[in-house]
Design a protein around this nucleic acid. Sequence first.
DNA 1: ACGTTACGCTACTGCTCAGTAGCGTAAGTG
DNA 2: CACTTACGCTACTGAGCAGTAGCGTAACGT
Lengths: 183, 183
Amino acid sequence: MLILTSTLDLLAEKDYERLTIDEVAARTGKAKTTLYRRWSTKEDLVLAAIRAAGRPPEEDRPPDLGSLRSDLLAVIDSPWLGGPSRRLSIFVGLASATRNSKRLANIVRSEVTEPYVEIYRRLLHRAVDKGEISKNFTASVPVLAEVIPAMSTHRLNTSREPIQRDFFVSVVDYVILAALGVT
Amino acid sequence: MLILTSTLDLLAEKDYERLTIDEVAARTGKAKTTLYRRWSTKEDLVLAAIRAAGRPPEEDRPPDLGSLRSDLLAVIDSPWLGGPSRRLSIFVGLASATRNSKRLANIVRSEVTEPYVEIYRRLLHRAVDKGEISKNFTASVPVLAEVIPAMSTHRLNTSREPIQRDFFVSVVDYVILAALGVT
DNA sequence: ACGTTACGCTACTGCTCAGTAGCGTAAGTG
DNA sequence: CACTTACGCTACTGAGCAGTAGCGTAACGT
């Protein structure tokens, strides 16, 4: 649906508060009243846009490319929500929404951020089970699973420029894999 | 100055956009006109509040407690900006401001976030120089210096609840020190 | 006593933006 | 051909909030 993807586009460019229905209308060529006929509030529209995006495909089919490193990078490169750059911008745009509405906050957490962290968590646990990583690191998995989302949103928040892939690679190599004793 | 610290308080509770001059006035018992006589815009007021906070004391006097671990925790526990909890909330509140004004964004970066990351960077480099950490890890210092701010703002953004100290300790032990091969 | 400075108060302007009213029109469906 | 459904358009209301006007008043120094 054009309207819903455009809503996500605008959410990526601005953020929830700066996203105006007028602009969604203008960009999609629809009339504002048309939007309000289908979604009775701005919150509903954004909610629908989130749901329309579906869930990350890696949730059902986690990558299995032979090494933890390549699996982590595969998730980073995932085309979900339009690839790393758009996905990250949407994450940041939605973060501001969680301050507006507790309802929105819960949906965002349960449909977007939590599933995403969960994927990393599972990859890490699987690497331990496989023996690729020592069992001594089991305790650190929950924290490490948050590292990639945390570092990338922080980067985008402070630098405003699009994030280079090198940065993700640095995080994987210098932080996550290093913390797991992978040499 | 009561007005400036209250401004920071409100910034910590809400964020830049939700901070209203009327509320600053109400909370400080001042008249709104009084505030506008001294600072001609909301942006100026917040700017003044930031400057009044000064710079982190660790910038001049980095902690030196004998181990990298205790130095990192000392910076985390720093009383600057009212201690970890208030400081972190202010960071998050200011992040929303960087979307409003490029001027504000630059000041926030140069006076608040960058100095803070720089402190971690220096602690890490010093540990390498001292020989506490192997020189092999020099390349990873810039990324690791962002880990604590990134992880803590991310936590606050997604969970909304105050952050427990255990979390910081986990980040230090399971992420940073682990990534530096400290056993 | 007198002027100056700083503050308080009430009331207003002006803008942005969510959400609504009401009317018109094209396209499908029986 | 009538009827319904869906959309477009212009114009409005109403709230929130930055910033302003104008007047009154206490505190101060001289």
